[in-house]
Amino acid sequence: MMAYMNPGPHYSVNALALSGPSVDLMHQAVPYPSAPRKQRRERTTFTRSQLEELEALFAKTQYPDVYAREEVALKINLPESRVQVWFKNRRAKCRQQRQQQKQQQQPPGGQAKARPAKRKAGTSPRPSTDVCPDPLGISDSYSPPLPGPSGSPTTAVATVSIWSPASESPLPEAQRAGLVASGPSLTSAPYAMTYAPASAFCSSPSAYGSPSSYFSGLDPYLSPMVPQLGGPALSPLSGPSVGPSLAQSPTSLSGQSYGAYSPVDSLEFKDPTGTWKFTYNPMDPLDYKDQSAWKFQIL
C-alpha cells in the first residue's frame, strides 16, 4: 500500500520538471525561470610600474599592434585584453584634452560664430520673369535699313540677281523696263511654242516681248482663266512685280493683265486636223540634229 502513496517519478516537459499528477507549474501565473544575472567585471587597478610601461608604449604609438600589447601584458602581468581596453580609454582621454585646449585658446566670443544676415524675399530687387527677354536684342539694338529709291541700282540687283547668272552684270533701268511683257505680243502666236536658250531668258530683255519668248507657250493655258476669275487675268510678269519692288498687295496686282481676252486664246483648236509644230532653235543647249523629232501629229 505504501508504494502507491509515494509520488511517481519526475517528468520533464519543455525542460520543466513536473512532479506526478501536479500540474501547477503549467499555470499561467507561474513564470518561467529567468537567466542568472551576469556579474559585473571588477575594475582593474594599475600600479605605478604598470602605468609607466603603458605610458611609455603610448608615447611611441597610440595604436599598438597585438604583438606589442602581448609583450607589455607579459611585463606588467596583466591579460592582453586589459591592455587593449586601457589604450582605448587613453585615446579617448587624449582627444578630450585636445578639445579642452582648443576651447581655452579661443576667445569668449569666438564660440558663437556670427551668422550672415538672411536676406528677406521682398527687399532684394530681383529681375521680373513675367516678360520673356528678347534673345536677339531686336527691340533695343536692331534698326531696319532704310528703303532705297525705287530706281536705285541696288534694288535692281536684289531683284534680278536671283534669276540671272553670276557672270552677267546687273540690268540697267532701261533693260528692266523691257522685262514687262506686252499683251499683244504674248497673244499673237498662241499655238507656236519656241524653246529659246537659257541665257536669253536671263539677259535678253527682248525675249519677253517677242513671239518667240519663253513664256509665249504658256499663254494658251493662262488666258482661259479670265472668265472664271470674273475680271482681268493676273500676270506674273506684269508691271512692277518684276520691277523695283516685289512687295505689292494682291489688290494692286488684280488690275494688271496680259491684255484683252480673245477667243483665239482658248485651248480649242480651230482646225482639228492641224498639227502643233515646235520651232527648233539652233541655240538650244539640247543638241538634236534631227528636226523631225520636234513634229508630232495630233490624233
Rank of each mutant, 00 (worst) to 15 (best):
Q50Y: 12
D284C: 15
G183Y: 10
V180F: 04
S185H: 05
A293M: 11
T45D: 14
V66L: 03
Y214C: 04
P36T: 07
G230R: 14
P250D: 03
S161Q: 07
R37P: 07
P7S: 04
R48S: 06
P149K: 10
L74I: 09
G8W: 09
Q28V: 12
Q228P: 09
D265N: 14
P165C: 12
K118D: 02
D24K: 14
R90F: 14
A114N: 04
L57N: 14
V157Y: 09
S262P: 06
Q100K: 07
P127M: 10
S257L: 12
P7A: 02
L136P: 06
V264S: 02
Q228N: 06
E268Y: 15
S206T: 09
S235E: 06
L16A: 00
P135A: 02
Q106V: 07
R119F: 04
P108N: 05
F201H: 02
I298K: 00
K277H: 07
H27W: 14
G148A: 07
S235Q: 02
P145D: 03
Y63A: 12
D284Y: 10
L51A: 14
G255T: 03
P190W: 14
S206Y: 15
P240N: 08
A92N: 12
Q100E: 09
K38E: 12
T44N: 13
P272F: 12
A17K: 06
T273K: 09
P224R: 13
D65T: 08
G122M: 08
P197I: 14
R126S: 08
L179W: 08
D134E: 08
T279S: 02
Y221P: 01
P220H: 08
F87E: 13
K289W: 11
S12A: 09
Q28L: 15
G231W: 15
F201N: 00
Q105K: 09
S150Y: 11
G255D: 02
F201P: 02
P135H: 06
T47I: 11
D290A: 15
Q175D: 02
Q175K: 11
Q39V: 09
D290F: 15
N6T: 08
R90P: 15
A196I: 12
G151S: 04
Q297E: 08
P125W: 08
P244W: 12
T45P: 12
Q248V: 12
P107M: 06
G231R: 13
V83K: 14
Q28E: 05
S34Q: 04
P282Q: 06
D140L: 12
P244N: 08
S249D: 02
S249E: 04
N77M: 10
A112G: 03
S150E: 06
P232H: 15
W276S: 00
S150M: 07
G109D: 10
G137E: 10
S81N: 04
T129Q: 06
S245V: 12
D134R: 09
V13R: 08
F201A: 07
S238D: 02
E70K: 01
D140H: 02
S152G: 08
P172T: 06
G122Y: 03
T47S: 06
A59R: 10
E52M: 06
M283R: 15
A200Q: 03
S161K: 11
P108E: 02
M283G: 06
S223G: 06
E173I: 14
A293E: 01
A174P: 06
K277D: 00
P107H: 05
M26A: 04
I138P: 10
D271M: 15
A92T: 14
A196R: 09
Q100C: 09
Y11M: 03
D24M: 12
L218I: 03
K295G: 04
R98T: 08
M2W: 12
K289F: 11
E71I: 12
S249Y: 10
G243A: 04
A233C: 06
I162L: 01
A196T: 05
P282I: 15
I298W: 02
L286Y: 05
L218N: 00
S143W: 10
L136Y: 03
H27D: 04
E268C: 11
V30H: 04
G109T: 02
P190C: 12
G137D: 09
Y4W: 11
A73P: 12
S161W: 14
L51W: 13
P149G: 03
S143E: 04
S292V: 10
S252R: 12
L78I: 11
E168W: 15
M283C: 06
G217S: 04
A166E: 01
V30L: 08
V30Y: 10
V13Y: 03
Q228T: 11
S254K: 06
S199V: 12
S141M: 03
A260W: 13
Y261T: 02
L179G: 02
G259S: 11
R115P: 01
A196G: 03
S199Y: 15
P145Q: 02
Q101H: 08
N281S: 11
Y221E: 01
P232L: 14
Y32F: 11
K75N: 10
Q111P: 02
N14L: 15
A29H: 06
M193A: 02
L253P: 02
S223C: 08
P144R: 05
G183D: 01
V83M: 14
Q291D: 00
G137R: 09
L146W: 03
S188C: 09
A196C: 07
L286W: 04
V85Q: 12
L299M: 01
S241W: 15
N281F: 14
P236V: 14
Q248T: 09
A29D: 02
R126D: 08
E71G: 12
A233N: 12
M283E: 00
G8A: 06
L51R: 07
P232I: 14
Y191R: 01
